[in-house]
Structures are given as C-alpha cells and as structure tokens.
Simulated scan of single mutants.
Amino acid sequence: MKTILFYKSGKPEDVLEVDERPLPEPQPGEVRIKVIASPVNPSDLMFIQNLYGIRPQFPSGAGFEGVGIVDALGEGVQMRTGMRVSFTSIGTWSEYAIAHQRSLIPVPDAMPDEVAAQLFVNPFTAYAMLQESGVQANQWLMLTAAGSAFSKMVIQLCKMKGIKTIGTVRRDDLNDELKALGLTEVINTETENLAGRVKQLTEGKGVACVLDAVGGHVATEAQKCLCKGGVMLIYGLLSLQDPTLNAGLMIFRELTIKGFWLTDWMRRVDSQTRQGVAQNVISLLASGKIQLPVEATYSLDEIQQAVDHADRQGRHGKVLIKM
C-alpha cells in the first residue's frame, strides 16, 4: 500500500515521504480501514515537527483523522466490514490505516466524505470548548485566529446559541465570509488596539471567554479583554511564542487561564458526555446547519503541495488528502 512516512522531525514539506508498505493487519480490538480522505490539520503539522503532545515514534505515519470503509476486523471486534466510518489514529495519510474500534464513528449516508473526513478534530474540539467555556447567550466570546477552520465552526455554533463573538485577524480578506457565518465583530490586530476596541464593543465589560490559538503578543493582549471572572482557554500556539501572564489582572479580575487538549478532555469526561457531543456534532453536520468547507484536495503523491497549502494564511477551507 502507499503511505506517508517521516523518519525524523522537521518541516513537513522537507521530511514527509511517499512509501510503499505491506498491508497492515489489525490486532485484537482493532480494525483496518480503507481510507477515503483525510484532512491536514494544524495538529498534524505540529506532530511532524515534534511540537505536539504526542511524540512520533520513527518511522512514523502522519495524519490524525479521516473517513474510510472498514476492511478487516481484529479479534474480538463485533461489527461488520463495509461500514463507512470517521476514525482517529496516527497515520491516516495512507491508503489503509489501523484504528482501535473505540475511535470509530459510523457516518450517516447523508454526510459527504469531505465532511466526514473532518468530523472529529475541529467539530469535537469546538463543541467541547464551547461547553467548557461556560459562555451563555448574549455574553461575548473572543476567538484569536478567527479565520481558521476551527474558529469558523465555533462562530457558527455561537450564532445558534445566541452568543456574541469577536474574532481577531491579521488581514481583512476573510472579514465578509466570517460575518456571513455569524461573527459579530472583527478586529485586525495589525491595525487596531485589541483591548481598546473590545472595551468599546462590550461597553467596558469585557468578554466572558477567550479561545486562543496564537499565544505570544496576541494572547498577552487578549488577557486584558476578559471581564471579571473571565476564562481564557489556550488550545494552540501558532506564533510559537508563549504569552506573558499579567498577575495583576489575574488577581483583581479573578481570571482563569488554562489549556485545552481534546485528547485529555475525551479521557476526562464520562461516556454519556462524549456520546452527547458526538450525537450533536453529527446531527449538525449531517443536517448542513454547520458548514465545513474544503478549499483543495491532493493525492498522496502531492503531499508536499498539500502541507504547503494547508500552512498558508487566508485559506477559505480545509485541505484534504484523497486516496
């Protein structure tokens, strides 16, 4: 089978290779999946650079999620082959992948492959983080890196829940699209004072929560935008720079600043909560109420072009690898 491997950490376009490997056999509790499509997510690119919470074991596959057809069953797996499933694993950029049966989500017929391929990482994180934030209708929530696929998902969820949103951008070319999705206000951090503008928009109250993917100066300034008792959930570090924490703000506004990683959240919550999130996410995506646009698709042989495209600023949708 054709698969993507890397033998050392580094820039994805430099270290990823197309390789031929024997067809893998599922172990007890596992299934083999004939992969249809897999997205290129920021977490995939961080993993390849050894900057993620999970460390690669060389040679390593790449890609954390995808959609495919169950092709073979390991011992003890009670399900049928031929099912179309969304799944998570390490090594989804491949013609075939191995996944544990617990990671599989049966996909409704109404859901296109392009949506099912993106079912887990961004939608689950968006839904779970919104729950974790505790933000209620008519309160303000701020998103850094508002043009990302994740932020677009959160914007749509907030609109449905009546939550007002502020999104930060560095360029204005996505502003109309973000407003059309439901973003209440856009702030360009290159040309506007973030804290001052948020104070104006919220009538001096501040935002109840910041979901931060950037770190560095943007996250440092975003702390100033939180209301008393506000929460900042940090889920990324696109700038590769740590923010500076303001102890005075944390003390006198009683702020909470903490990290969020979907892998740990899934382990921490009970099965009923996980199933509830899954049912809600699938329902929203299958009905078309939430959109997950795709900007471009590439083959395994075009992996360098795919990861380069996925890392560009100003994309309007996800980059997919189709097998």
Rank of each mutant, 00 (worst) to 15 (best):
A208Q: 08
M153C: 14
S239Q: 12
E95F: 03
V207T: 02
L143E: 12
L143F: 01
P59A: 04
G63W: 07
D14N: 14
T244R: 11
I155E: 04
T263V: 10
K159C: 00
P106T: 04
E192W: 01
F150N: 04
S287M: 11
Q27R: 13
G230Y: 06
E114F: 01
L5V: 02
V135M: 03
N246P: 03
K2R: 15
V18W: 03
V35N: 10
D172K: 12
G259T: 09
D311E: 14
T144Y: 03
P24W: 08
F120L: 12
R55P: 01
E95D: 08
P243F: 09
H309G: 00
L201E: 03
S287C: 12
D301N: 14
L245H: 08
V210M: 06
E13W: 13
V70A: 11
D212R: 04
E295A: 09
S60M: 04
T191L: 06
K179C: 02
T256K: 14
F260S: 07
Q279P: 01
A117H: 11
F252E: 10
L245Y: 12
V77E: 01
L240D: 05
Q118T: 10
V121S: 09
P293I: 04
D14Y: 05
I48G: 04
G215P: 07
A72Q: 15
T88F: 00
G53A: 07
S9F: 05
L141E: 02
F64G: 04
V207S: 03
Q49E: 15
M142V: 01
Q223N: 06
G259A: 07
N280Y: 00
G248A: 12
N188Q: 11
V198I: 09
A310M: 01
A72R: 15
E114R: 14
L284R: 03
K205E: 08
V77N: 03
V319P: 00
F47L: 11
V70W: 03
T92C: 13
R315H: 04
S103Y: 01
Q156H: 04
V70I: 15
I282P: 01
S271M: 10
K11E: 15
K199R: 14
D301I: 01
I69F: 09
C158A: 13
V15L: 12
G215Q: 06
A126E: 10
A137Y: 00
V277Q: 05
V214K: 10
P59R: 06
M142R: 02
Q49Y: 12
G68Q: 10
L51A: 13
L240T: 10
M266I: 09
M46Q: 13
S148F: 04
A208K: 08
G134F: 09
G276F: 05
M232Y: 06
T244Q: 13
S287Q: 08
K159R: 15
Q304M: 00
K34A: 14
P293F: 06
P12W: 11
S283H: 15
R80T: 12
V40E: 09
A213F: 10
S60W: 00
Q304H: 13
Q291M: 11
V154T: 11
A137E: 10
Q305P: 00
E13H: 12
S60P: 03
D308R: 14
F260Y: 11
M323D: 02
E295H: 08
Q200R: 10
V169A: 07
V319Y: 00
R253L: 08
L233H: 05
S103A: 09
L238N: 04
L237P: 02
G167Q: 13
S271E: 14
M79C: 02
I33G: 04
M250V: 10
D176C: 01
R268F: 13
V115I: 15
M46P: 00
Y96L: 02
